[in-house]
Design a protein around this nucleic acid. Sequence first.
RNA 1: GGCGACAUCGCCAAGUGGUAAGGCAAGGGUCUGCAAAACCCUCAUCCCCGGUUCGAAUCCGGGUGUCGCCUCCA
Length: 464
Amino acid sequence: MRIYNTLSRKKEKFIPLEPGKVKIYVCGPTVYNYFHIGNARTFIFFDVVRSYFTYRNYEVTYVQNLTDIDDHLIEQAIKEKTSVPEIAEKYIAAFFADISQLGVKKADHYPKATEYIGEMLDMIEKLAEKGLAYEVNGDVYFSVDSLTSYGRLSGKKLEELRVGARVEENLQKRNPADFTLWKKAKEGEPRWPSPWGEGRPGWHTECVVMSRKLLGETIDIHGGAVDLIFPHHENELAQAEGISAKPFVRYWMHGGFLNIGGEKMSKSLDNFFLARDVVKKFDSEVLRIFFLSKHYRSQIDYNLDLIGESEQALHSLYMLLKDLDYLRIMDKRINYTEEVLESKNEFLAAMDDDFNTARSIAVLFDITRKARQYYNQQNPVYEEYLHMLVELGQVLGLFQNLAIKLKTDWDSYSNDLIALLVKYRDKFKEEKNWEMADQIRNDLRSIGIELQDTKEGTIWKSLK
RNA sequence: GGCGACAUCGCCAAGUGGUAAGGCAAGGGUCUGCAAAACCCUCAUCCCCGGUUCGAAUCCGGGUGUCGCCUCCA
């Protein structure tokens, strides 16, 4: 397997720290709001990463954090006239509900920032002891000048950051690029005691602490979208390197944005659609096809017409499974022949190459065509292809709850069908075609449905 | 201003030196009383200019255009 590593800007051979095991940490949501469909793209992609490693027989430990204390939560609590913990609780529940709707499987751990305050303080103290952090008026900052390697993940040079047009003005900081490790509490804000007075942790500390605690000092993959490279991941790396000589992350993976109208979708630009709303309009698997049809590091434009195309594409996959009656052979044990395994190998090759899902989906469609051809030729190899299609599709998170989806739910039609017959009978009655009207009533009775003409119209009862 | 990414059929999108995957749409056909659905078939030389090479969408240089990061943000 090869994975593009943001740190080296190259695809690198994937070698896990421990053979057969993969430790993945993906930055999760700050729970002050519902997440949008752009966030969902990242969650879905890493769901596939995890799923693929599992398929390749790796033992995966997947951690995603929940940031439940920061400025946004405090603001939102004021806006909603409630407390920070209640905001956190509300949007954590919403987060889980939404990822479930998206068909994203749960991570192994969801550490919350507020549960690791003690560990964060320990780390900040260690950084201070090493001269990498300093306190001013109850705030503690990380001193970027103390670390020569600062900027290597994002490819930034400190001098450039200094002259950059948009560096925040803060006279307390020795260097404007210094970032907050501990923030002094203002009146009425949530607070924890610390050696520097009451306050709360800065954002970048939690991920280092929780990652090290749950996965160890060195993890295999740390993920997120590109906007996290700087400053968030750069700052995480700085702290981790300040604390330990061991490498923090072996492979940094960053996904591209979901754009809208050619522009990045973001909460601050107010041009976003909430995932929970989008998933009401489109099946979660349609969204998967839509996202995975393009490489994860590319930008994707959110466009309803394009999602409609994905809907068509997914539909054709399901039509194949229905037409060729996959349900009938679902439980059949299959020994794949060489030819079918070749398709699998193509799929694996695509995924092994930095998770090229666009290519792996193309393999799915190739399989579809072959299955159909063999079926038309009445060659039983089609059964193998069908099984392979489902097996590989499920690695991408497609074909969830297949048995239910493929089964025709006649119950849901019965009311409508009887209503339809009643309507036709009414039409005949209107035309005084009593023969046809009576025949409908008699035929229905013969299959156990009795029509009764009342003042309110025709009702029906089951005789069974 | 600094740094980076991208530009492939009508649309979306793979392909990183050996002669252009796949999806959607479109056209033709099969089926049908007519349709719909489904199925089969067809459909690109890769933004521009120059260079390297036996050979480039793929490498190098120069344009043009789009986007991102440098600020909280997946």
